[in-house]
């Protein structure tokens, strides 16, 4: 059983998608040293998932576990690692 479960929504295999994956790995493996499961979904191939999740902005990382479910928008280049695992978020921005 992994400690964390993430879903990453990207749109195509461009540099931004690659950056996001690299940033996520850096945050989890190096800074936080956590075990996690990561599922990557390309919305260009699965647009109906974008519809179901009502996704507008990408890349979008969703923390599925632990609760509460949380959404992170952007390539994760500008985020404190601790925000990935914290339970309460104070400085949030509306999506």
């Amino acid at each position: 059983m992994k400690e964390y479960k993430f879903k990453l929504f990207i749109t195509g295999n461009d540099y931004r998608s690659e950056n996001t994956i690299r940033n996520l790995k850096r945050l989890c493996d190096i800074e936080l040293k956590i075990t996690y499961e990561l599922k990557i979904i390309d919305l260009l191939e699965n647009p109906q998932i974008a519809e179901e999740e009502k996704i507008l902005a990408t890349p979008l990382l969703i923390r599925e576990f632990p609760e509460p479910r949380r959404r992170y928008i952007g390539d994760l280049s500008n985020i404190k690692a601790s925000l990935l695992c914290t339970e309460s978020i104070k400085n949030t921005h509306r999506e």
Binding site: F9, T11, G12, R16, N19, T20, N23, L43, L44, P47, Q48, A50, E51, K54, I55, L56, A57, T58, P59, L60, P68, R69, R70, R71, Y72, I73, G74, D75, L76, S77, N78, I79, L83, I89, T92, H93, R94, E95
Partner: peptide, 25 residues
């Protein structure tokens, strides 16, 4: 607007998700 307080912006983003949805629909 989602009634979802659990959203954080962290880095560059685009609206490709939206564009993909509109095109698919």
């Amino acid at each position: 607007p989602r009634n979802d307080k659990n959203v954080i912006y962290g880095g560059d983003f685009n609206l490709n998700g939206l564009i993909a949805r509109i095109k698919a629909k």
